[in-house]
């Protein structure tokens, strides 16, 4: 009786979640690889086998290159702001000098993280608006109207305007992750350093950074992976425009698939996205050690 119970019940308990994961996460993944080798549209029930031609097209496609470079820009800038700057910010917030004001600041910095991206993006449409936008009005106010630009309509600034919005929204998130990591550092380390007469900056590099190394790495990978996948921000703000100047891989995939109805080619783009992010994800598993926690 006990033996039977031990086999049946665990299986039944875990079955629904395995079904969910299998059907909605793993099968689509495999299906996507399969789709990459076919040419099809939403409203044609038949798929035409085309071999590797979608991938050949992919590597010759200038827009894919533009998008990929934009994703990389996204990643680099996000690492600088969301990882480097956030770590400094977290260190300052955890410093005893600011312990009165820190809890409130933590919440304030975190607010944008909680707000839906469509609200944020619509808000930034107002901020970047060339006629009444807050940014240009502000520049005018401080006498820098020569710097005012149609931020989202200018091919050189559009992608940076999109990236800037992401930084604004996400710094609080990574900062919070660093705060948690910093709180785990044994306080004795700092006390000892204090006695040695080490300054704040030396303490930061000699104690904080090495002690949060793991979090630093994980946060960096989250940020990079997020940057390689980014869809919502450019989709809502610019839809990849003007021209293709703020295109990212995910937006391009969406447009090929759901706007131009080249589902096969869109699947090939998705495969590229998968390969790029899988590399980072594998590193993340290795480093963060999720799963081997016993």
């Amino acid at each position: 009786m006990i033996a039977r119970r031990n086999r049946m019940i665990p299986a039944l308990f875990i079955l629904p979640s395995l079904l969910f994961l299998g059907i909605f996460i793993y099968i689509p993944l495999v299906q996507n690889f399969y789709n990459s080798f076919f040419d099809f549209s939403v409203f044609s029930p038949t798929k035409e086998y085309v071999g590797f031609s979608a991938f050949e097209q992919l590597f010759a496609d200038k827009v894919v290159m533009t998008a990929f470079i934009n994703n990389i820009k996204y990643a680099i800038i996000s690492v600088i702001f969301q990882v480097a700057f956030a770590l400094v910010l977290a260190t300052i917030l955890e410093d005893k000098l600011f312990r009165r004001i820190a809890p409130m600041l933590r919440i304030i910095y975190f607010i944008p993280v909680m707000i839906s991206i469509s609200v944020i993006a619509l808000l930034f449409n107002f901020i970047y608006n060339p006629q009444m936008g807050l940014l240009n009005s502000f520049l005018e106010l401080v006498g820098l109207e020569s710097l005012a630009l149609p931020w989202l309509g200018n091919a050189t600034t559009s992608i940076y305007a999109v990236i800037a919005m992401s930084q604004w929204q996400s710094i609080g998130f990574i900062t919070m992750l660093f705060i948690v990591a910093i709180q785990k550092i044994p306080k004795e380390l700092y006390e000892a350093a204090n006695i040695d007469g080490a300054g704040k900056i030396r303490q930061f590099f000699n104690i904080t950074v090495p002690q949060v190394k793991e979090a630093l790495f994980v946060n960096m990978l989250i940020t990079i992976t997020g940057a390689m996948l980014v869809f919502n921000e450019p989709y809502i703000l610019t839809n990849g425009g003007p021209g293709t100047s703020s295109m990212t891989l995910s937006v391009y995939m969406y447009q090929q698939g759901f706007f131009k109805d080249n589902m096969g080619y869109a699947s090939a783009v998705a495969t590229l996205i998968f390969v790029v992010t899988a590399i980072f994800a594998l590193i993340q598993i290795k480093v963060s050690g999720t799963g081997k926690d016993e």
Binding site: T277, A281, G291
Partner: peptide
């Protein structure tokens, strides 16, 4: 195996599954 299957799910991103999910 089930545990690895589950943890692996974290690494999968919705963008890649978008079109197959739409079909399904």
């Amino acid at each position: 195996v089930a545990l690895i299957f589950t943890i692996g799910g974290i690494m999968m991103n919705p963008q890649v599954a978008l079109i197959p999910l739409f079909e399904m």
